[in-house]
């Protein structure tokens, strides 16, 4: 276990470095000059020259990468050209928002997706299974953007129960914070629940057909024990992988959902930055999410170990 962990940790370092290089290089492929994009409507040549010099835009690519990565290693991710704020501070202020949204969405997804997958697998081929599948299909095929607007129309405009937008930090008012976050979290959780349900169902079906399950039944174990202790545990591996990936995606900012509910998270930060050619922000956010992805993968690997003893053998 320890050797495995060390090996995995060692591969993380070059992966992150490689990711940072790719992020930096890809970003330069974006057509459009940030100095021009930032120079206002009047396009004063002096302003353009000033911005170029200030943000080292005239230097060759490797030198700019050097400037950037040198800064990142010392905790300085640069300054947003557009907002005139340090990128690190922007990321730190948006991360809790996105993290909260991601955790809430994940909880909703797990609460809906996994039980539904189990129920539909156990009742394979019955109307219950079809109904669960239909619900999943709805979840998969409903665009987040549309569902978000529909929910706002219902709960905010018609019923007036929940605010249509307006993020409140949980430290300021937890109840208001939850009221503002529940709709976006549900919208995000809804689509992930559908994928989870499908994966849980498929994995469960495979496990249910295996010999040891038949043996467990033959031993006279109660069906719930067989399903939860023996089947679900084995079926959990692909679901964990999926969960980690989906969670990583949520952390990189749920773009459309954040737009609909105007949640000030990573997605909004990122999109604005891309359109304004705010390189430092794009680089910072992507590096941050790429690193999170890599770490989540590691966590998923560790989780396999814990649920599936077979993997513990070298």
């Amino acid at each position: 276990m320890l050797r495995f962990l060390l090996r995995r940790l060692l591969t993380i370092v070059p992966t992150v470095i490689l990711a940072s290089m790719i992020i930096f290089a890809l970003q330069q492929l974006l057509p459009g000059d940030p100095a021009i994009a930032m120079s206002g409507e009047e396009k004063d040549p002096e302003v353009i020259a000033f911005i170029r010099a200030k943000y080292h835009l005239n230097e060759p690519l490797p030198i700019r990468y050097g400037y950037w990565i040198g800064g990142v290693l010392t905790g300085d991710m640069g300054v947003s050209i557009r907002l005139q704020e340090p990128v690190a501070r922007l990321i730190v202020s948006k991360l809790p928002v996105t993290l909260q949204l991601a955790v809430m969405a994940m909880i909703i997804a797990l609460l809906i997706g996994v039980p539904m997958g189990v129920i539909s697998a156990v009742n394979n081929g019955t109307p219950v299974d079809y109904a669960a599948n239909a619900v999943a299909l709805w979840g998969l095929s409903t665009p987040n953007f549309w569902l978000g607007i529909m929910l706002i129309l219902l709960f905010s405009v018609q019923l007036g129960w929940l605010p249509a937008s307006g993020y409140v930090p949980p430290t300021e008012n937890l109840a208001e914070n939850l009221r503002a976050m529940i709709l976006p979290a549900f919208v995000l959780g809804n689509s992930i629940a559908a994928v989870m349900m499908r994966h849980t169902r498929a994995a469960m079906l495979q496990v249910l057909a295996s010999d040891y399950v038949r043996t467990a039944h033959a031993k006279g174990l109660p069906p719930t024990t067989v399903i939860i202790r023996h089947c679900l545990r084995n079926a959990a591996v692909p679901v964990i992988t999926l969960g980690a990936l989906e969670f990583g995606q949520l952390l990189s900012g749920a773009l459309l959902t954040e737009q609909v509910f105007s949640v000030p998270g990573f997605g909004k930060l990122m999109v604005d930055a891309v359109f304004n050619r705010d390189y430092a922000v794009v680089q910072g956010v992507v590096l941050c999410t790429a690193t999170t992805y890599i770490l989540l993968n590691l966590l998923a690997d560790i989780a396999y170990f814990l649920v599936n003893p077979k993997l513990r053998r070298p």
Partner: peptide, 9 residues
């Protein structure tokens, strides 16, 4: 659309 929805709600 979202801006208008916020006004209406």
């Amino acid at each position: 659309t979202v801006r208008l929805t916020n006004l209406r709600s």
